[in-house]
Design a protein around this nucleic acid. Structure first.
Lengths: 345, 345
DNA sequence: TTGAAAGCGCTAACAA
DNA sequence: TTGTTAGCGCTTTCAA
């Protein structure tokens, strides 16, 4: 170990094994060792063997930070999610991560916690790491973050929404189309007194708007709209249902409720049943997200399903293609949605 | 822009603004610009102003990859989780991330997908990034991954479990103590015919073992033990309850079931009620994890609560302290647990 | 308080 | 197929 061959080791050095150490042990130049490790096809079998052995003997783990700096390819993809807790995005993140990992990429996850300032700081921190690509849940509104992102030149994919003005690539679906479809669905089932229970959220807002518009167009009565604010728990769903029932009593009752998440729907359902209302007999309920377990509850929840895994996988592929310098066409993909009809509506 | 001042720009260069550009614009040396940005107290007000202006004008975002290589401090913490979907670890990860972010660190997340090989690859990929610390959910068993981790010298914190032989730091609780406590709890309530429904999982196994031991010690009948395998969904909970009831019919019934997760408990509860059994009247149910929404269901789930956020926050602080070269004592912290008594048991 | 020089660990470019 | 050289963008060391 204690060889004093390096002439000027004045500085730090983490003490870890470097490519130099491996190369020395294998009796080749560092660059040759590098090739033996990264592009084994480019070196002779003999060199390959010697380097492999040196790697095994030393327990060398390549420093990807240094490699990334030298090659301007970090093999890192950053993702921004609003929250990791009981989130409808989990399936997407899991697929994104799995696809990236299998291709030798890594995921850096950042939470924006539904806060614009935090999102902006996060974006700056992410750009500082020079990832090969950035995954965004949702669409980034105009602002400093968007400008910086654009300036960075890093490939970006926005998801879970649609817009005519994406930053770069876009994989999503139309929230308005969902609101419209659910309203028609409930109307076709004969429900006439419709209501919304939703979190304070831009995307949920657009679903709600389209829902109301469709009902109005069909000649229905005004839709009762309960906004639960930023907190999206089962409890807030229960509370919302309480308020909803109060309001509805004045206007003749409710037949069906469209909730902005499955968790909220579960809360609404729980409250309804706690008050002796039958689901779907007295009131029908539709959720959003198709979280894994709602299919096996009693009654099974009717909900809107987004293929989150598809979004994650496609996003990973687009980002990696762009990191390889390939063009990606089309830039915008609509993955659609489906209404999964089960027992609750 | 097109200044041809740099003499030998033969190579790549991502084209992005660098510290050099900022320094040139501000009329100072790069190192001075660096100090103005990172340790503003060390430079004159005049320099600070000029550099700030140059940064603003150019939209400079420091390259943390280069900084990390030069300083051997990445300000990156890596975390390994088994899964991100509906996981009991979410709260921990969220707290970990929030605490790190506020201190200027970033989180790199890796999923082991409950697979040992994948975990090993993941560990190697993580070490290659030279993070300042590594967060592990669970305890890493002896093996190549553990050896490499030890050799890397990177601070590590293992969590959600206890062991006399941690790699480095440890923040967790005793699964055996939980199994024991839940058995005593149910026994004290007068339940005598006890059962377990659990996923194939080492930690759940140890809770189960202690549960059985406590029942045996109290003189109870053998505990029926249903193993649902690796799949941990509400569906598998329902199926498990079906099997359990079948087995129990031969031995005189069941009074109470301890499940290895809240989701499984929800499945067991769903199936029980679907078969006309009252909860907790006919059968009591205890979950594990205290996932946010189980408190507001009807009946509210009695479960074991772990303060996951505390684990995440403490882990972040320990890791950052070690990255700063501080010693952390004690190395092992037991955060305990509590049985949250609600309606289901 | 400011700067020059060196180098973190690796890979691109070019040459042999 | 292998090696030499330079340098990615930053920070440490040391000197002024």
């Amino acid at each position: 170990m204690a060889d004093k061959d390096s002439p000027k080791r004045s500085r730090r050095g983490s003490g870890a094994i470097t490519l130099r150490d491996v190369a020395k042990l294998a009796g080749v130049a560092p660059i040759t060792a590098s090739r033996a490790i990264n592009t084994p096809g480019q070196v002779s079998a003999d060199v390959r063997r010697k380097v492999d052995e040196a790697v095994a003997r030393t327990g060398y783990v390549p420093n990807r930070v240094a490699g990334g700096l030298a090659s301007a390819r970090s093999r890192l993809i950053a993702a921004v999610v609003p929250s990791t807790v009981v989130s409808v995005f989990n399936e997407t993140i899991e697929a994104l991560n799995a696809t990236l990992f299998d291709a030798g990429y890594q995921l850096m996850l950042g939470q924006s916690s539904y806060s614009p300032e935090r999102e902006e700081q996060l974006l700056e921190a992410i750009i500082g790491r020079r990832p090969d690509g950035i995954f965004l849940t949702g669409i980034l509104p105009p602002g400093k973050g968007r400008t910086r992102l654009l300036a960075s030149g890093i490939p970006v994919v926005e998801t879970w929404d649609l817009t005519p003005t994406p930053i770069d690539m876009l994989i999503g679906f139309s929230h308005a189309a969902i609101g419209d479809a659910v309203a028609r669905f409930l109307w076709a089932k004969g429900h006439r007194r419709l209501a919304l229970v939703r979190a304070e959220d831009d995307r949920a807002g657009r679903r709600a708007q389209a829902f109301q518009a469709a009902v109005a167009q069909a000649g229905g009565a005004p839709v009762i709209d309960i906004n639960v604010g930023a907190v999206r728990t089962l409890r807030s769903g229960r509370d919302a249902m309480g308020r909803l029932l109060e309001q509805a009593a004045a206007s003749g009752g409710v037949d069906a409720v469209f909730c902005s998440s499955d968790l909220l729907a579960l809360g609404v359902m729980t409250e309804a049943r706690a008050r002796g209302l039958a689901v779907p007999g007295d009131v029908a309920i539709v959720g959003f997200g198709d979280v894994p377990f709602v299919s096996d509850m009693v009654p099974a929840l009717t909900t809107v399903r987004i293929n989150g895994a598809e979004i994650g996988e496609r996003a990973a592929r687009c980002l990696m293609a762009r990191a390889d310098g390939q063009a990606v066409e089309p830039r915008t993909v609509d993955v659609g949605f489906s209404i999964i009809e089960r027992d609750s509506a």
